[in-house]
Design a protein around this nucleic acid. Structure first.
Lengths: 223, 223
DNA sequence: ACCTGAACACCGTTCAAGT
DNA sequence: ACCTGAACACCGTTCAAGT
């Protein structure tokens, strides 16, 4: 009886690494990386600020665990019955979509590219490249290139959060381009004309365009 | 006379935005981004910690200014009399080398890709792509892809500083790959065999390999 | 106008003290 | 064993006070 009462006081939702990581993800999605502090996390878990360190070790480890969770979902979620042609694209797009939905994950991936999760993505990319017809000696460079491209995009997606709020993006970029073009006396070059697209482009479409450029740069041999 | 004496007390090395930024670069090169604090910077300039804010505004602005200085040097330092073929490569390699020499700059570029300096690099890339024979409609996507690749590499170079010290890189990677291969029962696939190169590869050579893959992916029309 | 440096409002992390 | 929350050692930034 007394035991019953005591265990009830302790609550069914005992603290655990898993519960902490999930709570962290919620805060990150809601308030961004700046919103996740030891104190805000402890408050949302209704516990003391020091309790977290009993289960997680450090804030960095917590961010790593959060991003692990996310990437594992993406990799696990890719349909098995796809053609080799589709497989790399689905993987790259899967990570892209996850980062767009959770920009803090993009910042973390770009900041710690030696995380085991990133290595995992690298290996998944590489293993999908092979049946696509990439020459064996080029496999490593091809996978590295795609990964670096993905990490670069990840950082940009993470940063775009800080941009959208605040100054008007189109106006800012337009002014910068104009300034540059004037300094180079190339105001009417084809590239400067094309650059106006920067202001109002779709991030996902542009990601795909770059992906296709890289893929078509790979010397494929017939299967 | 009294004026003379007073101005001498004030010292010839009066504080200025330029002097602050240069001092910051020195600290960043010596002690990394973590070593640059308001207090350490003030100490190296032999002034009060608040003085810096009279000239710079914020720490973020200081980092932006430091990276601006670096990139401007790179762009200005590219030989003018190069062929279009060489020009893009020299630009990309120039930024790569600068980041490898000053990893903190890589972190900053990856973290704030909307910085005017990054836009500058984007425009420099694009304007060099055009005489190379890239189709006008593809110019924008091509320049974006190269920039994203460069920023991805920038983040990786910045992070490799935190890796080299500490655990042995080769052993760590080897174990991770083995683990993955075992889980996927593909221990003897060509890709896994190639991946051993990860442990002991040359960053610069790999960067060039990726650059060539992307460039050869661009549909060039004859000039 | 420029500089000083104490003070403020935060951080992540630790740890004696409680249950 | 698990949790608490005050305390510690830092941050970037501000601002009254000095010159």
């Amino acid at each position: 009886m007394t035991n019953e009462a005591r265990s009830r006081t302790r609550r069914a939702d005992a603290l655990s690494r898993d519960r902490i990581v999930r709570a962290a993800v919620d805060i990150l999605d809601l308030h961004g990386e700046g919103g996740l502090t030891t104190r805000s996390l402890a408050a949302s878990l209704e516990t003391g600020s020091g309790a977290i360190f009993h289960h997680v070790g450090s804030r960095d480890e917590l961010l790593r665990a959060a991003v692990d969770l996310m990437v594992a979902d993406v990799i696990g979620g890719i349909a098995v019955e796809t053609t080799p042609r589709e497989s790399v694209r689905l993987l790259m797009l899967g990570v892209f979509d996850a980062i767009q939905a959770h920009p803090w994950a993009g910042a973390q991936l770009a900041r710690e590219p030696w995380q085991t999760t990133v290595l995992e993505v690298f290996l998944e990319i590489g293993s999908r490249l092979q049946p696509l017809g990439v020459r064996e000696e080029e496999l490593f460079d091809a996978a590295s290139t795609l990964l670096s491209y993905l990490l670069g995009i990840a950082g940009q997606l993470a940063a775009s959060v800080h941009i959208s709020r605040g100054t008007d993006r189109a106006a800012f970029l337009g002014a910068a381009v104009e300034n540059w073009a004037a300094r180079h006396s190339s105001a009417d070059s084809p590239f400067v004309r094309q650059v106006t697209r920067l202001a109002n482009h779709d991030d996902r479409e542009q990601f795909i365009a770059g992906l296709e450029i890289i893929l078509s740069g790979l010397a494929l041999h017939p299967e």
